[in-house]
Amino acid sequence: MPDNLFADLPALDAADEQFTRLLAEPGLVVERIVSTGQASPPDFWYEQAQAEWIVLLAGEALLRFADEAEARRLQPGDCLDIAAGRQHRVDWTQPGTHTIWLAIHRAAP
């Protein structure tokens, strides 16, 4: 686990996103996600049992919800609370740079 959220980043041509668990306790997981141009597969939707709060720390991304017509453009500092079971996907992350997310997964109330 890095001591700095901007340390130990993957190569900019990495084939897969990098998921690093930073903290785990009952009902709570904090992870850093680093994208380098990846997106969700076509027609794939995340539908998680737990709620998730995210903040984009670096880069840019388009995040789409199944119940919204347009994707949301996220830039550094933007954050969202995603309810458990709400379908969402990553339409795009900025290629040629590190898009760094901080995600907090928590048990649904």
Rank of each mutant, 00 (worst) to 15 (best):
L28A: 06
A39L: 09
Q18Y: 02
L80F: 10
R64W: 12
D13C: 07
D43P: 06
N4I: 08
D8Y: 04
D13A: 12
A84S: 07
Q38I: 02
Y46H: 02
P95V: 01
V29M: 08
H105V: 02
E60V: 04
L80M: 13
V55F: 04
Q75C: 14
A39Q: 11
R106E: 05
L102R: 10
L56A: 03
L5M: 12
I100Q: 11
V29Q: 01
A39M: 08
I54A: 04
I54F: 05
A83Q: 13
E25F: 01
D3W: 12
E31M: 13
A58M: 13
A15K: 13
A107P: 04
F65D: 03
E25H: 06
H105S: 12
S35C: 15
I33F: 07
A69L: 15
G27F: 00
A71N: 09
D78A: 11
V30R: 00
E17A: 09
Q50K: 06
A83V: 08
D67V: 15
W101L: 01
A107V: 07
N4C: 11
V30G: 00
D67T: 14
I104C: 12
N4W: 13
F44K: 13
V90Q: 01
L56G: 01
G59F: 02
P76M: 05
E52F: 00
T99W: 07
D3S: 15
P42G: 08
D16H: 08
P41I: 07
R72V: 14
Q75K: 15
A107W: 00
W101Q: 00
D16C: 08
L80C: 10
V90D: 00
P42L: 08
Q48Y: 01
S40A: 13
R73T: 15
G59M: 06
P2F: 12
A83H: 13
A11N: 10
E52C: 04
P26F: 01
A14D: 06
A103G: 10
I54Q: 03
R72H: 15
